[in-house]
Design a protein around this nucleic acid. Structure first.
Length: 919
RNA sequence: GCCUUGGUGGUGGAAUGGUAGACACGAGGGACUUAAAAUCCCUUGGCCUGAAAGGCUGUACGGGUUCGAGUCCCGUCCGAGGCACCA
């Protein structure tokens, strides 16, 4: 009987579906384990072999955990709102809901073929109203909350109103946008509109004017993580800076907690570091400088991490967008400043970046007074200072900051070195080391001592205070697009007001065209009657990360219409134990989700403060492209080894008609009519293709579809092969070169159970060496699976299969097939059934590892002299160190080796090696 | 520039500081077969030697620690990913 993977795989896939094998139920008697994949965006192209890499890994782990007695939650769903579906809709007029549903159906088909153990009864789609009801609900909660820095948590906005009425704006220490201070009496006197405006400065979901990434090509604003190098990540359109009023989430309020709580997560250091960089904590001080302009005097606050360098301040710089620019520009400089601002404003983000090193700036006419020296220094305006960070103004210390240095040299401003012996003739001395000089009371201190000393001093003088700044900005939360969650907000007299929760979900309306209106409003403005009680609804929609921020919670209780997740379900499943996905979400989804979770935690809706305990980043699967070489001006193709003898053009060829770099010539001729009459110059009778590693994409003809692999080799082979390819975290090209190897292995497994005459398993007692081979495998599998080293587990299977190939004993084969089942579940189920089991192998128990079976009775010591191996000696395993040494000394005395007198030291590492040190 | 990673045969990749190259692919040779497929066996880092036995050499490069280094430390070079006027 042959291994017929086609029959086996469809049989067991149908069985699992019919028997609801993988449906998870809350069960207090068993420990839970939650394994999650980053759910996919269902694109029109379908899955390629790169997608399942992480899914296979998580599936293996899920199945393994089930065998170990855990109650495993392993769900899947779709991140279904998004730009491609909308752009396709603009082109074709097809409703995005329709194309999305079609794509999902195709994804599901492809996923099912690979034999994943998902609990499909818990599937979620972010575009379902029943799902996005809870996205909208969370938004309303954020709208109705403020962030209290003192208790470090979000609280209901009503408490803030009460506090204002009692003590005015100074009654709270809250995360907020800038506004003028007010007293309790003023608060009580304010009208509705003014109060509304002020509260808006505190809400966690708020509307505010800010510089945004505006992408004209997409007609929408984008978040920082959706922009790369001045272009949109999706679509690659240029992005410019623009001031606009947008919905935002006060993520920055959570910066400290997002940073601190990274400590307890089991994530890779590189990913944690990416988040740390993104959050960008810097510890320093705020300092007040007196500034004078046209006879007026002001207090201007700046932020610095180098308080020790105040004595070297030779000028100040304002960001062009800073509100200080208007206040400080003198009449004499007004024209010059205006001109500079106009030019700066015109530039796109892209142009600003291209000119990174070009120094621009203009003098404001104002002067600042150095609070420590009393010296007057000019105040300049320059693009190199960012409005959004710190206070938008800096003190410039050209001797010890390379940016200030470049500026000083360009505009010929003085440079005062502050560190003994440093050379600032060519460049600044940025390192935080050395002994201070030219610095008054700081002279003689090291930089490390001087920084706190300087801050202590300015604090005592009342001209500054310690301050921690974060780079993390609030997330811009509205998109001028159709295919996203509508905001449950209306406007009355220009004031935003939330819809009552019982009106959720606010469903996405039908519109005639998926384009902005002629007036430039978002597509939702086209919807008829887009209003509630005569008040117009918000026309923007939410961004992609809205729906993906809490989906892991919804899986816990996907059909609950009363809550995002019930308390019982949340307290049972808690959070994700293992999350697998790509690094590309490091600064997007993984920050937003953590923020969202913390917010819900603050309000008591969830019981864990972090959503994803352990996270593994699977590497990307790159494409491996193949090339043929056409001799220029002909239809003749030359094999890669001979191409240098001709003048050729390199042409991508579909990798699906190439096997081990050998071109299937007939398939090539059929591939495109233009090659029907192609001729070939061969090497050794074969056409060998060239190759290169590139991104997997349609245009490179290097896309390998998992369906093709399933057709040819079966899902179990695909699963094993993807894991065998190399370490999970590593990026690697897809190359089918080795796939025959794992396919051969599965055939060998089949033959362990079936010979020519049929089922061949006996009840004979296992021999010691068979038990040893089995338990070596079990031990290795246990440790490997726990550490996600699946590639070496598969090697261990192959070794075991080689050793046990002739062994047809049930005692060995039953545990063997259980260990194999997470990796190759279909063949495992089939053989498990053949062994006479009625229930799915899912409900078996992972075999215990018995070390006693694998212990060697004797072991080989390699004896080396000064590190060079001379001879080996077999001694009993349990022999003590001293006796080993005595035996080895005795051996070493054998003529031809070394005499006893020369031996200085004998080092015995038990079970490993003996090294003899010779004089 | 800064942060994080990596660098091992023809290829993918194994190696708690202890016989480098497991396992697999590819390649070469052989068995079975009318033939092919499938399957099985042997060889396979490089070099020296007619072959074997044996030896030398070898984990990007240069040093160091150690009885012993792919592994630890210092420096250099190269690749990948992230951040990039964040004061």
């Amino acid at each position: 009987m042959e291994y017929n993977f086609r029959e086996i795989e469809s049989k067991w896939q149908a069985y699992w579906a019919a028997n609801h094998t993988f449906e998870a139920k809350e069960d207090a008697s068993r420990p839970k384990y939650y394994v999650l994949d980053m759910f996919p965006y269902p694109s029109g192209a379908g899955l390629h072999v790169g997608h399942p890499l992480g899914y296979i890994a998580s599936d293996i782990y899920s199945r393994y955990k089930r065998l170990c007695g855990f109650n495993v939650l392993h769900p899947m769903g779709y991140d279904a709102f998004g730009l491609p579906a909308e752009q396709y809709a603009i082109k074709t007029g097809q409703h995005p809901a329709k194309t999305t549903a079609d794509n999902i159906a195709r994804y599901r088909q492809q996923l099912d073929r690979i034999g994943f153990s998902y609990d499909w009864s818990r599937e979620v789609r972010t575009c379902d109203p029943g799902y996005y009801k809870w996205t909208q609900w969370a938004f309303l909660k954020m709208y109705g909350s403020w962030y209290d820095n003192d208790s470090a948590k979000a609280r209901p906005i009503e408490e803030l109103e009460a506090a204002f009425a009692k003590g005015g704006s100074s009654a709270v220490n809250a995360a907020h946008s800038d506004h003028d201070a007010f007293t309790a009496e003023e608060w009580k006197a304010f009208g509705e509109k003014k109060r509304h405006e002020l509260l808006m400065c505190y809400r966690i979901a708020y509307q505010g004017e800010t510089a945004v990434n505006w992408c004209p090509g997409l007609g929408t604003v984008l978040a920082n993580d959706e922009v790369k190098e001045g272009f949109s990540v999706r679509g690659g359109f240029p992005v410019e800076q623009k001031k606009m009023t947008q919905w935002q989430l006060r993520v920055s309020a959570y910066a400290g907690r997002l940073l601190d709580d990274l400590e307890e997560l089991e994530w890779t250091d590189s990913l944690k570091d990416m988040q740390r960089n993104w959050i960008g904590r810097s510890q320093g001080a705020e300092m007040t400088f007196k500034v004078k302009s046209d006879g007026q005097e002001y207090d201007m606050v700046i932020f610095t991490t180098r308080a020790d360098t105040v004595f070297g301040v030779t000028f100040m710089v304002l960001a062009p967008e800073s509100e200080w620019v208007e206040k400080l520009t003198t009449a004499a400089q007004k024209a010059a400043v205006e001109e500079y601002l106009v030019q700066a404003r015109k530039k796109t983000e892209r142009e600003r970046m291209a000119e990174t090193r070009r120094v621009t700036g203009v003098f404001s006419g104002a002067y600042a007074v150095n609070p420590l020296t009393g010296a007057e220094v000019p105040v300049w305006i320059s693009e190199y200072v960012l409005a959004g960070y710190g206070t938008g103004a800096i003190m410039a210390v050209p001797a010890h900051d390379s940016r200030d240095y470049a500026f000083a040299r360009h505009f010929d401003l003085p440079v005062i070195p502050l560190i003994e012996g440093c050379d600032v003739s060519e460049s600044s001395f940025d390192a935080k080391e050395g002994i201070m000089c030219n610095s008054g009371f700081l002279n003689g201190l090291t930089v490390k001592q001087a920084i706190p000393a300087a801050i202590d001093y300015v604090e005592s003088q009342g001209i500054g205070r310690r301050k921690i700044n974060y780079r993390l900005r609030d997330a811009i939360f509205s998109r001028q697009r159709y295919w996203g969650e509508p905001f449950p907000m209306t406007f009355k007299d220009g004031m935003a007001q939330p819809l009552p929760v019982d009106m959720l979900p606010l469903q996405l309306p039908e519109i005639d065209k998926y384009l902005p209106t002629e007036a430039g409003d978002p597509p939702l403005a086209r919807a008829e009657g887009w209003a509630v009680d005569g008040c117009p609804l918000e026309t923007s929609t939410m961004p992609g990360f809205a729906g993906s921020s809490a989906y892991y919670l919804r899986y816990m209780d996907p059909h609950n219409d009363e809550a995002l997740v019930s308390r019982e379900a949340d307290e049972y499943w808690r959070n994700v134990d293992l999350y697998i996905g790509g690094t590309e979400h490091a600064t997007g989804h993984l920050i937003y989700s953590r923020f969202w979770n913390k917010f819900l935690y603050d309000l008591g809706y969830v019981c864990e403060k972090e959503p994803f305990k352990k996270l593994i980043n699977q590497g990307m699967i790159q494409g491996r492209s193949n090339f043929v070489y056409r001799i220029k001006g002909t239809n003749t193709f030359v094999s890669v080894g001979l191409k240098d003898q001709y003048d050729t053009t390199e042409i991508h060829v579909d990798v699906n008609i190439v096997y081990n770099d050998r071109l299937d010539i007939e398939a090539f001729k059929a591939w495109s009519p233009e090659y029907r009459d192609a001729e070939f110059v061969l090497e050794n009778g074969e056409y060998v293709c060239g190759w290169a590693i590139e991104k997997m994409s349609k245009s490179m003809y290097n896309v390998v579809n998992p369906d093709n692999v399933c057709d040819q080799y079966g899902a179990d082979t695909l699963r094993l092969y993807e894991m065998f390819l190399g370490p999970l975290e590593q990026s690697k090209p897809w190359d089918t070169k080795g796939i025959d190897g794992v396919n051969r292995f599965l055939k060998k497994v089949w033959r362990m159970f079936y010979d020519r005459d049929g089922f061949a398993v006996t009840d004979e007692k296992a021999a010691p060496e068979e038990l040893k081979a089995l338990h070596k495998l079990i031990g290795k599998a246990r440790t490997d699976i726990e550490s996600f080293s699946y590639n070496t587990t598969i090697s261990a299977f192959m070794i075991a299969a080689n050793e046990l190939g002739e062994c047809h004993k049930r005692e060995i084969l039953e545990p063997f097939i259980i260990v194999l089942s997470p990796f190759a579940p279909h063949i495992a189920e089939e053989l498990w059934e053949a062994l006479g089991h009625k229930e799915s192998i899912t409900f078996a128990s992972f075999p215990e590892y018995v070390e006693a079976y694998t212990v060697e009775s004797s072991c080989t010591y390699a004896v080396s002299f000064n590190g060079k191996t001379r001879f080996t000696v077999d001694l009993p395993k349990d022999m003590g160190k001293d006796e080993v040494e005595a035996r080895v000394r005795a051996h070493a005395k054998t003529p031809g080796y070394v005499g006893d007198g020369n031996i200085v030291k004998v080092i015995v590492v038990p079970g490993k090696i003996v090294n003899i040190v010779v004089k």
